[in-house]
Amino acid sequence: MRVHIQPEQPDSAVARALIAELDAVLNPHYPPESRHGYSVEKLIQQGVAFFVVYLDKQPVGCGGVQIFGNEYAELKRMFVRPGFRGRGVGKQLLAHLEAYAAERGIRVLRLETGVAQTEAIGLYEGFGFRRIPPFGPYFEDPLSICMEKKLS
């Protein structure tokens, strides 16, 4: 099993397919006002650094990092296809995204996720993220969780 993570334009066919799968997984659980994921167009417009993770040359996940000045970076559109979870792919992707932010001098990494994403929440907590009040564009929402981690 060989994992390879590479930068990818969010509007590439591979990235679009992964983002569409992510939306298909999330949409049944959340009403429109509780969906905060960026569209492909907004990922590009906001300058999100986007990556695709390959397992033996097959695209199995994606994720991005948006940097907000020197204040913090935020994880965006992190996803691993359900059939490939439990193999450490998400951990490797998260470590890659953390390293990307840290290499740019960012000391705080934040994210927003939905309460139904229990596997993701477990992954983030295992990486040292802790729950925080809503930040930036987010608001109190019983279906939403905001988290952050201090980077060394």
Rank of each mutant, 00 (worst) to 15 (best):
D56Q: 02
R81S: 10
F135C: 13
H96S: 00
Y38W: 14
A99P: 04
R35C: 14
E119M: 08
V115E: 02
R87Q: 15
L55I: 10
L22E: 11
Q46L: 15
E33T: 08
P82V: 15
P133G: 11
L109G: 01
G61N: 12
P7G: 15
Q45I: 00
P134S: 08
L143W: 12
P133K: 13
V14H: 06
L55C: 12
P28K: 03
R130G: 10
A20K: 09
V3D: 02
Y138F: 15
L151S: 03
F129A: 11
V40R: 01
Q58A: 09
D23A: 12
V52D: 00
G37L: 10
T113I: 03
R85N: 07
Q6F: 08
A116W: 10
P82K: 12
G126M: 03
R104F: 08
Q117P: 05
P134I: 05
G128R: 06
S144V: 14
Y72S: 10
P82C: 14
K57E: 12
I19Q: 14
M78N: 02
R16E: 07
E119L: 10
G47Q: 01
C62W: 04
R81D: 11
E8G: 03
P59L: 06
G64L: 00
D23T: 07
Y30H: 05
Q117S: 11
P10L: 04
G88F: 07
E125A: 10
L55Q: 13
L109T: 00
L109E: 00
V89P: 01
S39R: 03
K57W: 06
P82Y: 09
L143N: 15
F51P: 00
Y138V: 07
Y72A: 13
A95E: 09
H96R: 04
G90A: 15
G61I: 11
G90I: 00
E103C: 11
L111Q: 00
P10W: 01
V53M: 03
N70Y: 13
M147T: 04
V115Y: 00
G105K: 09
G90L: 02
G61C: 12
A99Q: 12
G128L: 05
R77C: 10
F51R: 01
P59W: 05
Q66R: 14
F50M: 05
P142R: 09
E33S: 13
Y30K: 05
Q9D: 08
E140N: 13
L55D: 07
V60D: 01
E98I: 08
E140R: 14
L143R: 13
P134C: 13
C146R: 08
N27W: 06
K91Y: 06
I67P: 01
Y100E: 15
P137V: 15
L18M: 11
H36G: 12
H29R: 06
V89N: 05
E33M: 05
